[in-house]
């Protein structure tokens, strides 16, 4: 290539503006405005086709201040206005009580509240469980802390949503997340989760149904959208998570995306098409005796963990006392790679 840079390409949809990006989903070279439209319309269509909402619904948007939830809040509130969904939207944030990390991301959410004009509710571990993550880590160290956080967070969102009388909870889990989860469940032998994880709505029989409007949205597009629209989001690793690892599974998905971008959607399609044998024993759903949350055991996991903390027996409910199992946590605190990208369990839906 000599002389000037290669010719400017025009958007293949409108042919009027310069193309700004290559959509991984469709391999189209499109301009920014066409991108915004396609991006937003696909999500709108998904919401309509799957009957995610009813007019009048109170919808809590799980907001962490990160890219997915920020873009979700922005797009959802825009679609709500433009297409008259008639929804009452608000932001729901969880404060785990991690100094330096959560403070900053919560600040972002507060800014979003102002920027997008959505009310915000913050639920804290302290209020719900009587412990902050800082306090827990002080007690148990850096091993197994992610276990606590993951379990507590999941319940915190549900409890926060219930407290606010929400009808639905939406989270920003994107196509890459769901593809990773499908793979992880195969790798870990979790057939129960495998059957649920590619559904766009989960927990319909539980306290609050959860939806994932970004189910088919590529992570790359979310970042592009946020970048072009100059949306404000926060992106730092949780300070308690081991340094410098990206799960094997996520790495694999990224390598895959590079060879064949549609593979991410293909994994989700496979997940949707898996038919689980009826012979397989699936756990029964009941409620926790202590707090009433859904559980397949007598006590839900959070109650078990809390009980341990409160009694000064923080190991209670962590793994099993068999050789080899502890190794996983050892590896994590030493920064050795694990198979999943988010140790905090936020991929569990």
């Amino acid at each position: 290539m000599e002389g000037k840079r290669s010719k400017v390409r025009m958007c293949c949809l409108c042919n009027q503006s310069r193309a700004s990006l290559n959509r991984p989903k469709t391999l189209q070279q499109i301009c920014r405005d066409c991108f915004y439209l396609s991006f937003e319309n696909e999500i709108h269509q998904l919401i309509i086709d799957n009957h995610l909402f009813t007019p009048g619904d109170r919808v809590a948007i799980g907001a962490s201040g990160g890219k997915d939830s920020t873009v979700l809040a922005y797009v959802l509130s825009k679609l709500n206005r433009v297409h008259n969904y008639g929804l009452n939207l608000f932001l729901l944030s969880v404060d785990e009580g991690i100094t330096g990390y959560r403070d900053d991301s919560l600040e972002t959410v507060h800014r979003n509240q102002v920027q997008f004009g959505l009310p915000l509710k913050v639920v804290s571990y302290k209020d719900l469980y009587g412990w902050t993550m800082d306090e827990i880590v002080k007690l148990i160290g850096l091993k197994n802390n992610c276990t606590f956080c993951g379990v507590f967070r999941r319940q915190a969102l549900d409890r926060g949503a219930a407290f606010l009388k929400a009808d639905k909870l939406v989270t920003g889990h994107n196509a890459d997340d769901i593809a990773e989860t499908v793979l992880l469940n195969i790798l870990r032998g979790d057939i129960a989760r495998l059957s649920r994880c590619s559904s766009i709505i989960t927990g319909e029989d539980g306290p609050i149904p959860r939806c994932k409007p970004f189910k088919y949205t590529y992570e790359k597009e979310i970042v592009m959208y946020a970048y072009f629209k100059r949306l404000d989001y926060f992106s730092t690793e949780c300070i308690y998570s081991p340094n410098a690892y990206r799960g094997f599974a996520r790495e694999f998905i990224k390598d895959l995306e590079r060879i064949r971008p549609r593979a991410i959607l293909d994994i989700i399609k496979s997940g949707e098409n898996f038919r689980i044998s009826t012979n397989t024993k699936m756990p029964e759903q009941g409620t926790c005796e202590r707090c009433g949350y859904i559980s397949s055991q007598k006590w839900c996991k959070a109650c078990v963990l809390l009980d341990g903390l409160n009694r000064g027996l923080p190991k209670l409910g962590i793994g099993r006392s068999r050789p080899g199992i502890g190794c996983k946590e050892e590896n994590e605190s030493r920064g050795v790679k694990s198979i999943e990208s988010k140790q905090c369990g936020s991929l569990d839906f």
């Binding site: 276990t147 032998g189 756990p283 397949s296 055991q297 996991k301 409910g317």
Partner: peptide
């Protein structure tokens, strides 16, 4: 009463599970 974590616990236990029953034990 501890959740044996065989993957079915609804309260969000996510641990890297290997079902215990048919796993050969050391």
């Amino acid at each position: 009463m501890a959740c044996n974590g065989a993957g079915g616990c609804q309260s969000g236990c996510y641990k890297d599970e290997e079902p215990t029953s048919d796993q050969p034990t050391a």
